[in-house]
């Protein structure tokens, strides 16, 4: 073998060995968590569609109406606790879309304990997540209707489901079709292909939403006990 051939062979052997380094597994978990945190801290929170509609159309009318209502309440009765807001299905569907597609800042979690720990680190207003069916994928907090929604993304049979929890004192379900299972009543809504099942339990408001049929979402909600 002449010198040029030998050099070529040496070069090729070196290059081939280096190329194998590209297949070396690297643990990106810590980096991913760090980048997630950076994204959360640096992303401006998008107002929910319901907020945008409010601002665009309803604000002038409702501001006047609110002044009258507040004045009336103030005249007839001492103001007590703040009234809970009504959950808007369109806004909730938007939240599910963002959560399921990873568009909202979120924390990866694989079980309830991890989710609760991560959420508690984020905010003292995070609510404790109960045991959930399916596999937990991630968790996050959403500011919604002047309250904090504690959201957990779960996967069941390959379908993504968002479980949202809020304080019942600050959020209520809108009227709609109801389904009764034993002693529990679930209110159901569908917006833009997203089904949602809501329930009031103890001091909590619960919403289970996704593209699964209503009946299957009710089954998931039945498994969640506050």
């Amino acid at each position: 073998m002449n010198d040029a051939d030998r050099q070529h062979r040496l070069d090729r052997a070196t290059s081939t060995r280096l190329a194998k380094l590209a297949r070396r597994p690297v643990n990106t978990l810590q980096l991913e968590e760090w980048v997630e945190q950076a994204l959360r801290e640096k992303t401006i929170q998008k107002p929910s569609p319901s907020t945008l509609i409010w601002k665009k159309w309803l604000r002038p009318i409702t501001t006047a109406a609110a002044v009258i209502v507040v004045a009336t309440i103030g005249w007839f009765a001492p103001i007590g606790d703040t009234l809970p807001a009504m959950a808007a299905p369109a806004g909730l569907a938007s939240i599910h879309f963002d959560v399921a597609n990873g568009l909202a800042p979120h924390l990866k979690a694989s079980n309830v304990h991890e989710a609760n720990r991560l959420l508690a680190e984020q905010s003292s207003s995070a609510l404790t997540v109960p045991e959930l069916p399916g596999e937990i994928r991630s968790c996050c907090l959403h500011q919604y209707a002047a309250t904090t929604l504690t959201c957990v993304l779960i996967e069941q049979d390959g379908e993504l489901i968002t479980v949202a929890i809020a304080d019942l004192a600050s959020l209520r379900s809108p009227k709609g079709k109801s389904i009764t299972r034993g002693d529990r009543v679930f209110m159901v809504h569908t917006v833009n292909g997203i089904n949602m099942v809501m329930a009031h339990e103890g001091k909590r408001w619960l919403c289970v939403m996704g593209e699964l049929p209503i009946e299957e979402l009710v089954e998931v909600a039945e498994d969640i006990r506050m």
Binding site: T43, I44, Q45, A104
Partner: peptide, 8 residues
């Protein structure tokens, strides 16, 4: 230094 949800 903040970014929009679309940028994220």
């Amino acid at each position: 230094s903040m970014i929009s949800p679309n940028q994220a």
